[in-house]
Simulated assay, not measured.
Amino acid sequence: MLNNFDEIQKLSKDNMEIAAESFGSVSKGLQAIAAEVADYQKKSFEEGSAAIEKVVASKSLDKAFEAQSEYFKSAYEGFVGEMTKIGEMYTDLSKDAYKPYEGLMGKFGK
């Protein structure tokens, strides 16, 4: 009976360590994603402000439409690129969070 208790205690300790390691990976990953989103928002705001200034400063209606079109195109391309990057960051986050459990799954398979 004492042997089973020791095994259960060791298994419980191992599971807590794995959970803590996984939580640490998730925490770091979410911080990196939050920093990336904040950087993108700042950059997007600055580019939007510059575009508004360029449209307002345009001498003709054609130039204003041209400036607006350029901004919309670059904003769309930047958005798609950023969402792709954030998607990859979430994929990496899930892989890093799963890594500690890989060894545990191998134990149950035996």
Rank of each mutant, 00 (worst) to 15 (best):
M1V: 07
L2P: 00
L2D: 06
L2K: 14
N3W: 08
N4S: 13
I8N: 06
Q9I: 08
K10I: 00
L11E: 12
L11S: 10
L11Y: 07
L11F: 08
S12A: 07
S12E: 03
K13F: 09
D14W: 03
E17N: 14
E17T: 12
E17A: 12
E17K: 12
E17I: 06
A19R: 14
A19F: 11
A20Q: 05
F23T: 02
S25K: 14
V26D: 00
S27F: 00
S27R: 10
K28G: 13
G29S: 08
G29R: 02
G29N: 03
G29F: 06
A32S: 11
A35G: 05
V37M: 10
A38E: 12
A38H: 01
A38R: 04
A38M: 04
Q41A: 05
K42Q: 15
K43E: 05
S44A: 15
S44W: 10
F45D: 07
F45T: 00
F45C: 01
E46V: 00
E47M: 04
E47A: 13
G48A: 02
G48L: 01
G48M: 01
S49H: 07
I52C: 04
I52Q: 09
E53H: 10
E53I: 09
V56R: 03
V56I: 14
A57D: 07
S58L: 05
K59S: 02
S60V: 03
L61M: 03
D62A: 03
A64D: 04
E66M: 07
E66W: 01
E66R: 03
A67P: 04
S69I: 08
E70I: 08
Y71C: 06
F72C: 09
K73D: 04
K73W: 08
Y76P: 02
Y76C: 05
E77F: 02
E77I: 07
E77R: 04
G78R: 03
G78E: 04
F79D: 05
V80F: 12
V80N: 13
E82S: 15
E82T: 09
T84R: 14
I86N: 12
E88D: 12
E88P: 03
M89W: 10
T91K: 08
T91W: 11
L93N: 09
S94R: 15
S94P: 01
D96R: 15
D96C: 09
Y98L: 15
Y98P: 01
Y98A: 15
K99D: 12
Y101S: 10
Y101A: 10
E102I: 14
G103P: 14
L104R: 14
L104W: 12
L104G: 04
M105N: 05
M105G: 05
G106N: 15
G106F: 07
K107C: 11
F108C: 01
G109Q: 15
G109K: 14
G109E: 15
K110Y: 13
